[in-house]
Write a protein that binds this DNA or RNA. Structure first.
Lengths: 206, 206
DNA sequence: CATCACTTGAACTCATGGGTTCAAAATAGC
DNA sequence: GCTATTTTGAACCCATGAGTTCAAGTGATG
């Protein structure tokens, strides 16, 4: 076993990963701690040696995944920091990547778990957003910059960011039937282009 | 008890309503059939006398509520059949009503239950949509009519409908934190106006 | 080698909850 | 008013699962 997991840290990570996998598959209530231990390749008491109870196990597992996914989405916004002369195609690239991330299995699972357990774990909201609406803020910042450069209408970067995400994700969520159905690549790209098209009509510089 | 519930039918309705209330509050797994019986003012065997098991109880409860909510939303689209000369304010009225319905407690609960149990009850999707995407279809039809009358850009009514709903509901879902927080009336109206503004820039007749 | 911390499997406790049974009571229908 | 259907409460069976205990094992560290 020394080949795979060395030390407490690796075991902790294995437990959190296993936990998220099982929670994602079965939901909080149906997931058994024994299932999680099996998935993580670990004994049940070991789980309790790292986490005091099922609830904190859940919180930590969700937090770890949410953190990772948030980072990915933030990274996806990077191209907006320095779009070439073709703003449209840069936006489409970002949109494409955001859609790809949004349709990721872990992303869909996280969404399901949040909706499902938000009443019992209200603190998950703050945990997931990681202190303030980081993603929205980052996007709004980028758009504000572009507005200052005269490449977007300057009206309201927050509203623009809100609507950009909505145009992107809303139709996706409907067509994928709440993340149940996988969409073909081509349809994803088409969704991204449609969103950017409307976004630019509304918010592009004349 | 003759004053409240007469006959089997009323009992059945009471059971379905109680079931939805409890499922909404606790989720499928945590909801006990005894809880449901209590909420419905009925004995546990009576529940099993109407529904073979917890799963079909769940399906029927969800179906009843989904049906009612869908009807409400369809009705909310009515004004679009004959908008006055002020298309914008008609759209804003419809948008307002749709937002109101979307923030309704039962609406939020239904959404939570769907996301939560969609993997275990894949058939819920069809049950909820009630045979084809009725709401989307109805909206797209209205928009197509308006396009024919030259009051909207004729490009693609389906895409227009998709984006109209996205612009409305997306920002709402973010701001209300997945239906957790209630928004003040004023903010709802402001959301509706923002959505319609962008929609008309993109899809309004020049 | 000796110590200390951690892991393991298995067994155990205890609470919860789905679903059933049954005899008594209520209700519906005629 | 009489019969057939439902309803009711309470008890019951049984499976599942959270969390614990413990004795034996494993691994690092000095």
């Amino acid at each position: 076993m020394a080949t795979i997991s060395r030390g407490r840290i690796d075991k902790r990570r294995a437990i959190l990963e296993g936990a998220f996998a099982v929670f994602a598959r079965l939901g909080y209530a149906r997931a058994g701690v024994q299932d999680i231990a099996d998935e993580a390749g670990v004994a049940k008491p070991t789980v309790y040696n790292h986490m005091t109870d099922k609830a904190t196990l859940f919180r930590n597992a969700v937090e770890a995944v949410a953190q990772a996914l948030l980072d990915e989405r933030l990274a996806a916004l990077e191209p907006l920091a320095d779009p070439g002369d073709d703003l449209r195609s840069t936006l489409e690239g970002v949109a494409d990547e955001l859609l790809r991330l949004h349709t990721d299995d872990r992303s869909c699972a996280l969404r399901r778990l949040l909706y499902s357990e938000i009443l019992r774990f209200p603190d998950l909201l703050d945990i997931v957003k990681g202190g303030g609406p980081r993603l929205h803020q980052a996007l709004a910042d980028r758009l504000a910059r572009l507005a200052l450069q005269g490449r977007l209408r300057a009206a309201d970067p927050d509203e623009a960011a809100e609507q950009f995400m909505a145009l992107l994700v809303g139709p996706l969520e409907v067509r994928s039937e709440m993340g149940t159905r996988a969409l073909p690549e081509a349809e994803l790209r088409s969704l991204a282009r449609a969103a950017v098209r409307t976004f630019l009509v509304a918010w592009g510089a004349d």
